[in-house]
Each structure stands twice: as structure tokens, then as C-alpha cells.
């Protein structure tokens, strides 16, 4: 009698444990899929600040960045990329690629003050990134060319605000 009841309780606990295990596994799988999608395919990203005016708004846009072309080395001049800032590795910045390795880049050193320009040759394995708003952008003109390995993704689509929805040139 008692042993039968014990067996019942044990069976109950076993089924509860199994159910909990299954649920945990489903949640874990969900997070894994989310992580892999975000890291290897594409991820949404919120960008703000004046440096990419007029392409991106000052108040903040949500853009989609794809991770495939940067991994395959297909980033070309003219693309908007997300770069891990060389000065603060915890920050991502959105800039436009202006030159790949071996290119000669000519840029205005400080357009607010003078028309003085300089030109440099981008070293091997580096890219030259600059904001579209040359008057208020902290970019390669300040910290020099950035290693290609810092490129995290290529922005291709704006998803918010709705009226600006569409692909980014």
C-alpha cells in the first residue's frame, strides 16, 4: 500500500522534472537561435547622433545590419558599416566606408576651420571610415584607418521610423 503510494509520488515528480527539463531546453534553443541569427545573419541596431546626417536621423533610427558580407570580405567603398569604435570597444558606431586597403583617400582635416586637406594611403588590412556629416563626426580623420576586423556588419535597411522605411544606399 505504502510502497504503491510512494511509487505514485515518484512517478509524479519524474513527470514534473521531465516537463521542466523540456521547457528549459525549448527556451535554451530559442536563445541559441536568436544568438546565431544575430551574430551570423542579421541584427537590428539602434543608431543615433549627428555624424551620419542626412542619411540617418539625429534622433535615432533602427537599422538592420547584415553580418554575412563583412565576414566574407565583401565590404566595398560606399557601404554603411557598423564598426566597433577603436577608442571604446564597447561602443558600435555607424560610418560609411570611403577607402579599402591600398586606396588613396583625400579628406578635409577640419572643414569648420580651414580648407586644408590631406591624403593618405590606407594600410593593408584596414579601411577608411567617415561619417556623412563631415562637420560633426568623429571618424578616421581623428583616429586613422581602422582594422577590417573591427567591422561588425553592413547596414542595409532602415526599419524605424516607418516613413523612412527602406533600403540604405
Amino acid at each position: 500500500m505504502i510502497s504503491g503510494r510512494l511509487r505514485n509520488v515518484a512517478a509524479q515528480w519524474k513527470s514534473i522534472a521531465k516537463e521542466a527539463m523540456d521547457r528549459t531546453l525549448i527556451v535554451a534553443k530559442f536563445f541559441c537561435i536568436l544568438h546565431v541569427t544575430n551574430t551570423y545573419i542579421c541584427s537590428p541596431c539602434h543608431v543615433h547622433g549627428p555624424s551620419m546626417l542626412p542619411t540617418l536621423n539625429i534622433t535615432g533610427d533602427v537599422i538592420l545590419a547584415e553580418r554575412i558580407s563583412s565576414r566574407l570580405g565583401k565590404v566595398a567603398p560606399g557601404d554603411i558599416v557598423l564598426v566597433r569604435s577603436p577608442e571604446n570597444p564597447r561602443k558600435l558606431v555607424a560610418k560609411r566606408v570611403l577607402g579599402m586597403e591600398g586606396d588613396r583617400v583625400t579628406f578635409l582635416v577640419d572643414p569648420k576651420v580651414s580648407d586644408r586637406y590631406e591624403s593618405v594611403i590606407v594600410p593593408k588590412g584596414h579601411v577608411w571610415v567617415q561619417g556623412d556629416n563631415i562637420y560633426a563626426s568623429h571618424d578616421s580623420r581623428n583616429f586613422g584607418p581602422v582594422p577590417y576586423g573591427l567591422i561588425q556588419g553592413k547596414a542595409f535597411c532602415r526599419i524605424w521610423p516607418y516613413d523612412g522605411f527602406g533600403s540604405l544606399g
Binding site: G73, P123, K124, G125, H126, P147, Y148, G149, I151
Partner: peptide, 8 residues
């Protein structure tokens, strides 16, 4: 770390 001159 990734080599600065070659990201691969």
C-alpha cells in the same frame, strides 16, 4: 585577437 593587418 584578430590580426590588424589581416582579419582572417
Amino acid at each position: 585577437f584578430r590580426a590588424p593587418s589581416n582579419h582572417r
